[in-house]
Design a binder for these strands. Structure first.
Lengths: 198, 198
DNA sequence: CGATTCTTTGAAAACAGTCAATCTGTGTGG
DNA sequence: CCACACAGATTGACTGTTTTCAAAGAATCG
């Protein structure tokens, strides 16, 4: 399955496009390959694209005053990623988006996305649904950060995204969950007291 | 200015509706009065409406395992409020939404909103814009919670929402910022060492 | 391997929470 | 108009979670 058909399958699950609409939609996306450690968004530059992850893993992060990296968003197959504050308002980004693995993305420019949205009610609906789901998921994350301890947030993350927990380096998981790598390491150690303890 | 014309002015700033479209849009909203301490959303019940605040102040909060209240969202004039996870997916709410003051709201039901969205491309665009802005604002909040200390979050809140900081009880501000009332009180004390200190 | 990159560990310190008591204001009903 | 109740804010001592720092261990990759 190539990138286009993967995106086609994805949009088929969300937007009720007919065949021609699906083709026209996918046409504006451009496939790009990314290498591990490659940046696709950087602070100071406006995020020009929204990216659909065909293959690979990415993360978006900001740098704190002390130089710490704080992961704002993760992306793997069938997820979207960008600096949305930058992309939506077309203002300079505050985030880095970097590839954690070699991968394949399908990018749409802000301009082409706008044209899609205005060209068809159905496309507009598709992006509205994306944005609503994104709002709901961010709200769940805010709730988790307000109500749970570091250990609980990690447990919750393991349950919710078991595959991500395996795939992402631990410093990425830690910074996504709002704790230091050192502390996550200690949490993990407490959970699995010793190796070969059965 | 009544509630309807206030909403009309608001939608005029976001959606490019003509006169008739504005009238038709506003027609489906129903005005409701709320008294201080009145709940408009409660856990276990599906949030049936999205609310536009004409007048008053509200807050949405969840209850933690220890009984603490965590404020997820605030609402004052010209803001929207609901439990979006519940409203969007039409599932039982996890949040309370309560009036902090007597007020006036304009509510739209999930069903009517769906009809609006499907009846016109422009209405769809309006709700897409709402959702995108909401996503961006939640992302900013996540960044703040990951990168800033309690004191910095309070400073940022004061700068960003000076009117809210005056209007909301301090325990609401504290629980919105992810800290205890006691700790916020200590932060405030440090900032303004003593009354009459000049 | 040889050099990064990532993870673990432990001791000390900082940040923020808990608990309990007190203080303040504000309304409401008699 | 007063008194009482109650919601909200403050204070201080103590506790606990999480961070910081520094060093050493694994793992990975060219």
């Amino acid at each position: 399955m190539n990138g286009q058909s993967q995106l086609a399958a994805y949009v088929g699950r969300i937007g009720k496009f007919d065949e021609q609409e699906t083709v026209d939609f996918i046409k504006v996306f451009k496939e790009v390959k990314v290498k591990k450690r490659q940046f696709i968004v950087q602070p100071g530059f406006t995020a020009q694209h929204r990216y659909f992850v065909v293959k690979g893993a990415l993360r978006a992060y900001v740098i704190g005053k002390g130089g710490e990296e704080h992961t704002i968003q993760l992306g793997v197959e069938d997820w979207w990623i960008s600096d949305y504050n930058s992309y939506i308002y077309q203002q300079p980004a505050t985030m880095f988006v970097i590839a954690l693995e070699d991968g394949i993305l399908l990018q749409v420019s802000h301009d082409d996305e706008s044209k899609l949205k205005s060209s068809s009610h159905k496309y507009e609906t598709f992006f509205r649904t994306l944005a609503e789901r994104s709002t709901a998921s961010m709200q769940r994350r805010i709730i988790a950060s307000l109500t749970q301890s570091a250990e609980e947030r990690y447990e919750y993350f393991l349950e919710t995204y078991p595959l991500l927990a395996e795939r992402m380096p631990q410093y990425v998981v830690a910074s996504y969950l709002g704790m230091t790598t050192e502390f996550l390491s200690k949490i993990r150690n407490k959970r699995l007291p010793k190796k070969g303890s059965s």
